[in-house]
């Protein structure tokens, strides 16, 4: 503020001097570096700086938005990959063979597991409640082991899977109907290691 006031006083003095001399026009002296333009330049600089800052800010925001969008896209992709890894498959009654229509679910896990060699998973076999409690533990185990064999045949090392069985002890759907039984004859998947920063293939 003080600088501005001083500048204004200088402009007034120069103007008075110019008016007091009534002489033929002399070659115009090289315009003295006038404080006035200097003052203007400062304003321009300031304006420009502000503009640049705004632009930089806009760019920063644009980049941030882009990064956020990318991150969100990646997050979504990771979430999708995670969901694919966790997708349950179903079995036929008293069978441990991988059903034809369930292969696509398992196949979708393969590229994700290949892109994330540190990821380890637990496969839990479950059954409906029509067998005996104890024999169903064995059946659930065979189902989980069959999934591990299937994955190993597609190049995912079987050491990356732990297989466990809950038999009929943890039904997904209560009740005694074909619909409930079908939902309970399943293998569930849980990431047990290396899943914090999932790489998307």
């Amino acid at each position: 503020m003080n600088t501005l006031r001083r500048s204004v006083s200088l402009i007034a003095l120069v103007a008075v001097a110019a008016c007091s001399k009534k002489q033929p026009p002399a070659p115009a002296p090289a315009p003295a570096p006038a404080p006035a333009p200097r003052v203007n330049q400062d304003s321009i600089d300031r304006a420009n700086a502000a503009k640049a800052a705004a632009a930089a800010e806009a760019e920063r925001q644009r980049l941030a938005a882009a990064t956020a969008a990318e991150a969100s896209r990646l997050d979504a992709a990771r979430t999708a990959a995670r969901a694919k890894l966790g997708m349950v498959i179903y079995f036929d009654y008293d069978k441990d063979e991988i059903r034809e229509d369930q292969r696509v679910t398992l196949d979708a896990k393969v590229p994700i597991l290949n892109a994330n060699p540190d990821v380890k998973m637990r496969i839990a076999g479950h059954t409906d409640d029509r067998g005996s409690d104890e024999y169903n533990l064995a059946l659930g185990q065979r189902r989980a082991a069959a999934v591990r064999r299937y994955m190993a045949a597609r190049g995912v090392a079987d050491g990356r899977f732990e297989v466990v069985s809950f038999g009929e002890q943890r039904p997904a759907s209560p009740g005694e109907s074909e619909d409930a039984w079908a939902k309970n004859r399943r293998a569930e998947f849980e990431i047990t290691g290396g899943g914090t920063a999932l790489k998307v293939p």
Partner: peptide, 25 residues
């Protein structure tokens, strides 16, 4: 093993017999 289940004591009580395995048991 990965699966261990259906345990019983031997009639003399000295041992436990159970089913175990990683695939078959």
């Amino acid at each position: 093993a990965s699966l261990n289940f259906s345990p019983v004591f031997t009639p003399d009580g000295s041992k436990v017999v159970f089913a175990a395995g990683n695939d078959a048991t």
